[in-house]
């Protein structure tokens, strides 16, 4: 059952990314182009996504346990650190450069052509490079 839940969640996520325009790099870069021809669509996407999820978190607080597991994730960690800021800045730079983030790069894999596949390969390489980079960051 947990596998089915995961697959259904992934499927709805992928279709939502596709319908919302998140897989279209011009819409993402248009959203980030605040000083140019700004496209506010992504505010609707993020707002639309946060709404049901806020309800889900509230429900989780009342339910005590998920349907197919014994407990919900731990409360959010209030600790802010340098690694969070540096990582998010690097991610934002890449997001701006290509207009793709991890979810949409997977969702658009079937029609994204060689460029989309190359992006995914480079992204996986970056992910594998993260642990040694993190050790250096913590050592500085």
């Amino acid at each position: 059952m947990r596998r089915a839940v995961a697959a259904v969640s992934g499927a709805i996520f992928g279709l939502g990314l596709m319908i919302s325009g998140m897989t279209d790099t011009t819409k993402v870069q248009g959203w980030l182009d605040f000083l140019g021809d700004w496209d506010p669509t992504l505010a609707f996407v993020l707002g639309g996504a946060i709404l049901p999820m806020a309800v889900a978190w509230a429900l989780a607080g009342r339910l005590g346990a998920p349907a197919f597991d014994t407990r919900f994730p731990a409360p959010p960690d209030p600790q802010l650190d340098r690694q969070l800021a540096i990582g998010s800045i690097l991610f934002g730079m890449g997001w701006g450069l290509a207009g793709l983030c991890p979810g949409p790069s997977l969702a658009s894999l079937s029609w994204g052509g060689w460029g989309g596949a190359l992006f995914l390969i480079a992204m996986v390489a970056g992910m594998l490079a993260a642990p040694p980079v993190a050790r250096r960051l913590l050592a500085v």
């Binding site: 996520f13 996504a49 946060i50 197919f68």
Partner: peptide
């Protein structure tokens, strides 16, 4: 599409935690 993304996230949270 955004609502669908939020619903997908809700399913994973409320179903599998």
């Amino acid at each position: 599409g955004g609502l669908m993304i939020g619903i997908a996230a809700s399913i994973l949270l409320l179903g599998n935690g």
